[in-house]
């Protein structure tokens, strides 16, 4: 048994880390969020979400991230099933293929898509080369959804894969044995048993998608403003840290809710792979 003081010593670096890089910044956000430039308390920064321009950005962010999350789920589920179905040895190469892009710089990957989707980009050049009309993809909500799906898909695949590969194959066999066809087996057994993975996957895609400003910046141009962009601009351009922090608190509220939901469904931490 470690003595309490010894335990405290071992934990020290982590306590320091959490305090310096999590707790203090969080308090600073809260402090800025509830004060104005003269330092007196106010809720104006938070109620500023009701300003039509901000509210529109929040709604759009929610809408785009919900759509992206749904698309990610629909793409990732069959993929995760295929990955889980293969033996461990074979699938590890496949799993690697999905993890590998995540090791590349996020900005770099998104900028690459900018080049591809541009009006005079690679895709449109190819289209016009074979005589097809050019597509207007860049700087639309569609391009942002595309960017979100592309960037966050692995975060959906991995928890699902983790969850699905933990299902005892005999449980699936048992369902078949008891008379269920493959569709019934999927709906009544596979899907419910993968709920922890689904919830984790949804959280891990929805949260970064909701808060992103880089994807909307690069693929949406200045035309599509998400709540993330609004906050970013408050900090970097308008230099109004108070308003930026206030709006951040609103976002944080959404994030905490989805974290709680995910924690309720994923008690064993099945979905947390990364």
């Amino acid at each position: 048994m470690l003595k309490n003081s010894k335990r405290l010593m071992l934990g020290l670096p982590y306590y320091f880390w959490s305090i310096a890089f999590v707790i203090i910044p969080l308090f600073m956000v809260v402090y800025y969020g509830v004060t104005n430039r003269s330092g007196s308390l106010t809720i104006e920064n938070i109620t500023a979400i009701a300003v039509p321009e901000h509210f529109k950005a929040l709604l759009l962010a929610v809408r785009l991230s919900v759509i992206s999350t749904i698309i990610c789920f629909l793409l990732a589920y069959p993929l995760a099933m295929i990955l889980a179905k293969y033996g461990k040895g074979k699938s590890s190469v496949l799993v690697m293929l999905f993890i590998l892009p995540m090791w590349m710089n996020f900005l770099l990957r998104t900028m690459a898509w900018q080049t591809l989707l541009e009006n005079n980009g690679v895709i449109n050049s190819a289209l016009s080369f074979i005589g097809l009309p050019k597509l207007n993809i860049i700087n639309t909500p569609g391009a942002i959804i595309f960017g979100m799906v592309y960037n966050f898909l692995p975060f959906m695949v991995l928890p699902l894969y983790n969850s699905l590969s933990k299902i005892d194959p005999n449980v699936i066999n048992a369902a078949r044995d008891l008379g269920a066809n493959s569709v019934q087996t999927f709906i009544k057994v596979t899907l419910p048993l993968s709920v922890p993975g689904i919830m984790s996957g949804i959280t891990m895609v929805f949260v970064p998608a909701l808060t992103t400003f880089v994807i909307s910046d690069l693929l949406g141009g200045a035309k599509v403003l998400l709540i993330g962009n609004v906050i970013e601009q408050e900090f970097s351009q308008t230099n109004n840290w108070h308003l930026g922090s206030g709006l951040s608190l609103i976002l944080m509220f959404f994030i905490i809710i989805s974290m709680i939901i995910s924690a309720i469904f994923d008690k064993d931490g099945e979905g947390s792979v990364i």
Partner: peptide, 17 residues
């Protein structure tokens, strides 16, 4: 397929839902 067969299986390690 197993779901059409008139037999049932008790699996190793139970395999309950």
């Amino acid at each position: 397929p197993p779901n059409k067969r008139q037999l049932n299986t008790v699996f190793q390690k139970y395999a309950l839902f």
